[in-house]
Simulated assay, not measured.
Amino acid sequence: MEALQPDKKFLIQLAHTKMPYGKYKDRYLIDLPEYYVVWYHAKGFPKGKLGQMLETVYTLKLNGLENIVRNIQRNFPK
């Protein structure tokens, strides 16, 4: 079985996306507090690309892989 390859363009975009509204407006998605992302997971992620990104952040945080996005932020500047 072939492993899924993450969409590089999506991950680069995610690394540079900030929360567009709410209490954590203008904070990078990867820097959102874990409890907030877990709350979104329970409530339901928003529709569209932001929801996909928040769901990816949830999965990365759940598995302790936030450094993947932080490395992208350092190595692929906007």
Rank of each mutant, 00 (worst) to 15 (best):
L11M: 13
P77L: 06
Q13S: 11
T56C: 15
L54E: 08
D31Q: 08
H16M: 04
L29W: 03
Y58H: 15
A15Q: 05
G22C: 06
K49E: 14
P6Y: 01
D31T: 08
V37E: 05
Q73F: 03
Y35S: 11
Y24M: 07
A15V: 02
L62C: 06
L54H: 07
G44F: 13
L50K: 07
N75L: 15
Y35W: 15
G44W: 12
L4Q: 10
I12P: 00
N71I: 07
L4V: 11
K61C: 11
A42Q: 13
Q52P: 02
A3M: 05
P6M: 04
H16P: 00
G48P: 07
T59V: 13
K8F: 03
K61T: 11
A15R: 01
Q52G: 09
K43A: 06
Q73C: 01
V38W: 08
G51L: 10
I30V: 14
I12Q: 03
P33R: 10
Q52E: 15
I68Q: 11
Y28H: 11
H16F: 06
G48L: 10
R27L: 14
K49F: 05
K23F: 10
E66H: 03
E66D: 15
K18L: 05
Y35M: 08
T17H: 03
K25C: 09
L65A: 15
I72D: 07
Y40T: 05
K9T: 09
E66V: 13
K9R: 09
M1R: 00
D7M: 00
P46Y: 13
Y36G: 00
I72T: 06
Y21I: 00
Y58T: 12
H41F: 12
N63G: 06
H41A: 14
K43R: 13
D31S: 11
A3K: 06
I72P: 10
H41Q: 14
K78M: 09
H41D: 09
V37W: 05
P33V: 07
E2G: 01
Y21V: 01
M1G: 10
G64E: 10
Q73L: 04
Y24K: 07
N63L: 11
P6H: 02
E55A: 15
I12K: 06
A42W: 08
K78N: 14
T17F: 03
K8M: 04
L32W: 04
Y28S: 01
I72L: 13
R74W: 05
L54M: 15
Y21G: 00
D7W: 00
N63W: 08
V38L: 07
